[in-house]
Amino acid sequence: MIILNVFFTVKPEQESNFRTLMTHLVSQSQKEPGNVHYQLAQDVFTPHHYTLIEHWKDDAAIEFHNQTEHFLSFLNQASQLFSEDVVILKYINE
């Protein structure tokens, strides 16, 4: 299994837009073949910080996800949302 943790710092004025886009992205991604877990979590200590926790069957499932309409739509709108670079950490759980 492949685990991705994606860390976002959202501009305060974009938080509502971010949550709307993420709600759609999460709901659609959870339906994909090869998806084991897909969840957004908000940091309780640091305002506007979020972590997207993704568990995928394998790299092929991630490649499929990265070509879906809902993911590409999110990417097209994402650049205006963040006050810092997005950080992605990838783990393998064997």
Results as ranks from 00 to 15, higher is better:
1 M>H: 05
4 L>N: 11
5 N>W: 09
7 F>Q: 10
8 F>M: 02
8 F>C: 09
10 V>E: 12
10 V>A: 06
10 V>I: 15
11 K>H: 10
11 K>R: 15
12 P>K: 00
12 P>H: 00
12 P>R: 00
13 E>G: 00
15 E>D: 06
16 S>F: 04
18 F>M: 09
20 T>G: 00
21 L>E: 10
23 T>R: 13
23 T>P: 02
25 L>Q: 11
27 S>F: 04
27 S>Q: 13
27 S>W: 00
28 Q>C: 04
30 Q>M: 08
31 K>V: 01
34 G>I: 07
34 G>K: 06
36 V>Y: 08
38 Y>C: 07
38 Y>Q: 12
39 Q>L: 03
40 L>C: 14
41 A>D: 04
42 Q>S: 11
42 Q>H: 10
43 D>R: 09
46 T>S: 13
47 P>H: 08
47 P>K: 00
49 H>Y: 08
49 H>W: 08
51 T>E: 09
52 L>H: 01
52 L>S: 02
52 L>K: 01
53 I>Y: 10
53 I>F: 13
54 E>D: 05
56 W>H: 00
57 K>E: 15
58 D>M: 09
60 A>Y: 04
60 A>F: 00
62 I>H: 08
65 H>I: 01
65 H>W: 04
67 Q>C: 09
67 Q>P: 07
68 T>V: 08
68 T>I: 04
69 E>V: 07
69 E>C: 02
70 H>C: 06
70 H>V: 08
70 H>T: 10
71 F>Q: 10
72 L>D: 03
73 S>R: 13
75 L>C: 12
75 L>R: 04
77 Q>P: 06
77 Q>C: 12
77 Q>A: 15
78 A>R: 12
80 Q>G: 08
82 F>A: 09
83 S>H: 06
85 D>T: 11
85 D>A: 14
86 V>N: 11
86 V>L: 14
88 I>Q: 02
88 I>H: 02
88 I>S: 09
89 L>F: 09
89 L>K: 13
92 I>W: 02
92 I>D: 12
94 E>F: 05
94 E>I: 03
94 E>T: 06
